[in-house]
């Protein structure tokens, strides 16, 4: 299995301590929240959990599948089982034709429950793999997805697994982690957007400082 060559990344700061990859605690934590299949489930449901690049079932977590020297290759599997909408429409149309009238809300609910029971055990779930790279030395995680729902699911799973919160990087938090001097960091609390002048407003350039610290400038930007 080859690590991806392209993708979008959300970076997190790891707010806490995670056991070393070589420790039993690390693999036990992954195993406790490993992926569990819903292949035969008779309900509409989803399953999310850890797998490894070498074993997409979540049954094993070999260190050689996880260790990329400077980082740890984490992989989440998300399966979702849903009754195909087209099948529901077909069965509803058939039932309404034989009844000679539209189905009531209760009848529609009962029809859906019946179809779920009969069809879902034969329906395969959709499968999605999401990769992440945990960088122990930098206390960061690179998540290879920018989807809001994936990010939320990943953050929840990570917290449940390691009891450690992930803080997404933003321009300010990143600034705080770049080894800038104390004075620069203190100034972060005061910095306001520059109110760049528009064309034809030549005087504005010489009064840039005044314009960019005025309450009005702050209001426009926020």
């Amino acid at each position: 299995m080859l690590f991806k060559r392209s993708g979008s990344v959300v970076t997190y700061f790891v707010d806490g301590k995670i056991p070393a990859i070589t420790s039993d605690d690390f693999t036990a934590a992954l195993a406790n929240h490993r992926f569990r299949t819903i292949e035969t489930a008779a309900n509409e449901e989803s399953s999310i959990g850890w797998v490894s690049a070498g074993d997409p079932t979540g049954d094993s977590f070999e260190v050689e599948d996880l260790d990329l020297d400077l980082g740890v290759w984490l992989r989440v599997r998300v399966d979702k089982k849903k009754l195909p909408a087209a099948w529901l429409q077909i069965h509803r149309a058939t039932a309404e034709r034989s009844a000679g009238r539209p189905l009531s809300v209760r009848e529609r609910r009962e029809l859906k429950e019946d179809l779920c029971e009969r069809l879902l055990p034969r329906t395969l779930p959709s499968v999605q793999f999401i990769d992440a790279l945990w960088l122990p030395k930098q206390s960061r995680v690179l998540l290879f997805s920018t989807s809001k729902s994936v990010r939320e699911e990943f953050e929840k799973l990570f917290f449940k697994t390691f009891a450690v919160a992930l803080e997404p990087v933003d321009p300010r938090s990143l600034a705080e982690h770049l080894g800038l001097g104390r004075e620069a960091l203190a100034y972060l609390d005061e910095v306001a957007p520059v109110n760049w002048p528009s064309r034809g407003d030549a005087r504005a350039i010489s009064t840039l400082a005044e314009r960019s610290t005025s309450p009005e400038a702050m209001e426009i930007e926020n």
């Binding site: 299995m1 080859l2 690590f3 990329l68 020297d69 290759w73």
Partner: peptide, 10 residues
């Protein structure tokens, strides 16, 4: 290759 790619992302 996986190690190199991960290193290049970092």
């Amino acid at each position: 290759k996986s190690r190199e790619r991960a290193a290049n992302f970092v």
